[in-house]
Amino acid sequence: MSVEGVDHALRRRRAELERLSQDLLDLEAHPGNRLLEGARLCGETLRRWEDAQAETATLWWLFDAFRRTLERAEKLRAGRTRPGPAELAELTTLLTGPSVEAKVEDVPVERRSLIRPLGEWLTLDQVLTRMDAAYREIAQTAAAVDEAWTVLAPMINRAEAVRDEALELERALGASDAELGRLTAELAAARDAVRGDPLTHAADDRRVEFDRLVTRLEERRDLLARAVRFKEDHEGRMNALAELIAQVGAAEREVLTARDEVLVKIASPALPPIPDQARNLHDRFMALSSPHAGGEWIELARRTADLERAAEEALAQARETRSLITGLIDRRDELRGRLEAFRAKAVRLGRAEDARLGGIYRRARDLLWTAPCDLRQATAAVASYQRAIRQSGADG
C-alpha cells in the first residue's frame, strides 16, 4: 500500500471502530438485554441468554483485538512522516492482512472444543464479519425478549391492577378472603414464571392460561365489590327484600281469590298449579337475618342475591298464574260481548223475531249467564249463533 492508501485505510478503520463502539453501547442498552440482566431466568429464555452472553464475550474480545491492532498501526504510522518500504509493508499487513491472533485462551470456555487448532490469525475484515454474526445473534435474542415483554407486560399489569382492586375491596370488608389469597399466590407464581422465561410464556397457549387467571381474579373482585355494596346498604337491601317477599305473599293470595272466584263462575276450569312460595321465601329471609350470618359478607351477599332472584321469579309466577286464572272469566266476558254484538247484527238484519235464531241465542245466553259457566259449550253456542245469523243474512 502507498502512504496515501495507508492513511485512507487508517481513517476508514478508525471510523469503523467508532461505529462499532457506538453499536455495542446501543446493544448493551437494548430494552431486551436490560430486562434480562440480573433476572432469575429459566427455560428457553435462560438458554438463549446464556448463548447471547457467550456471544457478547466473543464480541467484546473481537472489538478489543480490532482496537489494539488499529492502535498499533496508528502508532507505527505516527512514528514516521515518510514511512519506508518496511513500515508500509507492516502497515499493509496490519490493516489488510491476517494481523489479529485468535489465541485458544482468548476463546470463551463455552465456545472451545477439545479438538481445535493452536491458534488462528484473522484480518480486520474477518474480525468485522465475526463481530457482525455475534452481534446479530445477540440482537435477535434481545429483540425476541423485548417483543415477548411487549405482549406480556400489559397482561401482568392488568392482572396486578385487578388484584390490587380486589385487595382494596377486601380491606373495605374488614375480613380476609381465602379465595383471593389463593389467587394472589397463584398470580405471584405465574408472574415469576413469566419473568423468568418470557420467551416461552409469550406463546399463545401460555397466554391463554394467564388470561384464565385474570378472569378468575376479575370474578373474585366483582364478587367482593358486590359484597362491599351489600355491606354498605345492608339495611336498605333487607328492607327491600322483605317488601318484595310481602308482595309475593299478596300476589299468591290474589291467586287464591281468583281461583275461588273461577271455581264458582266457571265449570270444570283447567287451572294451572297454584304457587305457594311466600312461606319458604320468608323462612329463607329469616335465616339471612339471623345474627350468625351477619359477619360473612360475601356469603351473605350471595345468599341475599339468590333470594332476591327467587322472590322476583316467584312474584312473576304468581302474577302470571293469576292472569291465566282470571283469563277464564275474561274469556266468558268476551263471549258475552260477542253474543250481544251478534244479537245487534240480527236486529239490523231484521231477524230479531226469527224463532230459530231466538232459540239459539237464548241457549247461548243461558250458558253464559249461568254459574258455573261451561266455557266449551258456551263457545260452541256463540259460534252456532254467529253461523245462523250469517246463513240467515244470506237467505234474506
Score class of each variant (00 low, 15 high):
194 V>W: 09
357 L>I: 11
331 R>L: 12
127 V>G: 13
249 G>P: 09
172 A>I: 12
204 D>N: 09
228 V>G: 08
393 G>P: 02
130 R>P: 05
112 R>F: 06
240 A>S: 04
72 R>C: 12
248 V>R: 10
91 L>F: 08
24 L>K: 10
391 Q>H: 13
17 L>Q: 15
293 A>H: 14
377 Q>D: 11
393 G>I: 10
210 F>Y: 02
239 N>H: 13
25 L>P: 07
152 L>D: 02
142 A>C: 11
376 R>S: 12
320 E>Q: 13
366 D>H: 11
279 R>W: 07
89 A>D: 08
318 A>V: 08
42 C>W: 14
287 A>C: 11
338 R>P: 00
91 L>T: 05
315 L>N: 06
133 A>D: 05
287 A>Y: 14
341 A>N: 11
87 E>K: 15
354 D>W: 10
179 E>L: 04
259 R>H: 04
265 K>E: 06
367 L>S: 02
101 E>W: 15
293 A>E: 15
274 I>C: 04
367 L>H: 03
59 L>H: 02
180 L>R: 06
297 W>G: 04
339 L>K: 06
5 G>H: 12
190 A>D: 08
157 N>C: 00
324 L>V: 05
33 N>H: 11
53 Q>H: 14
99 S>Q: 01
239 N>K: 15
216 R>T: 00
325 I>F: 03
143 A>L: 14
369 W>L: 03
274 I>D: 02
339 L>R: 07
292 H>Q: 12
80 R>F: 12
268 S>G: 04
297 W>M: 07
296 E>R: 13
175 A>P: 02
287 A>G: 13
379 T>Y: 01
5 G>V: 15
391 Q>V: 15
225 A>E: 11
25 L>W: 06
141 T>P: 10
372 P>V: 01
301 A>N: 05
19 R>F: 08
202 A>L: 01
43 G>V: 10
128 L>A: 14
157 N>K: 02
146 D>G: 09
59 L>N: 07
354 D>L: 03
240 A>W: 01
108 P>I: 01
388 A>E: 14
379 T>K: 03
96 T>E: 13
210 F>P: 00
243 E>N: 07
258 A>R: 03
302 R>H: 06
311 A>Q: 00
273 P>I: 13
308 E>P: 01
29 A>C: 03
374 D>M: 01
148 A>D: 02
115 I>Y: 10
189 A>E: 07
331 R>D: 08
297 W>Q: 08
312 E>D: 05
228 V>F: 01
280 N>V: 13
276 D>W: 06
156 I>P: 00
46 L>K: 08
284 R>I: 05
243 E>A: 12
255 V>R: 04
44 E>D: 11
267 A>G: 02
345 K>G: 07
303 R>N: 05
50 E>N: 10
96 T>Q: 07
135 Y>H: 15
359 G>Y: 14
162 V>D: 00
54 A>W: 14
97 G>R: 10
340 E>W: 09
351 R>L: 15
137 E>N: 12
324 L>M: 09
286 M>P: 02
46 L>I: 02
19 R>G: 07
233 D>A: 15
68 R>V: 09
253 R>M: 12
381 A>G: 05
139 A>Q: 13
50 E>G: 03
74 E>W: 08
120 E>Y: 11
386 Q>G: 13
267 A>W: 01
212 R>D: 01
42 C>L: 15
256 L>E: 14
360 I>E: 06
231 K>R: 15
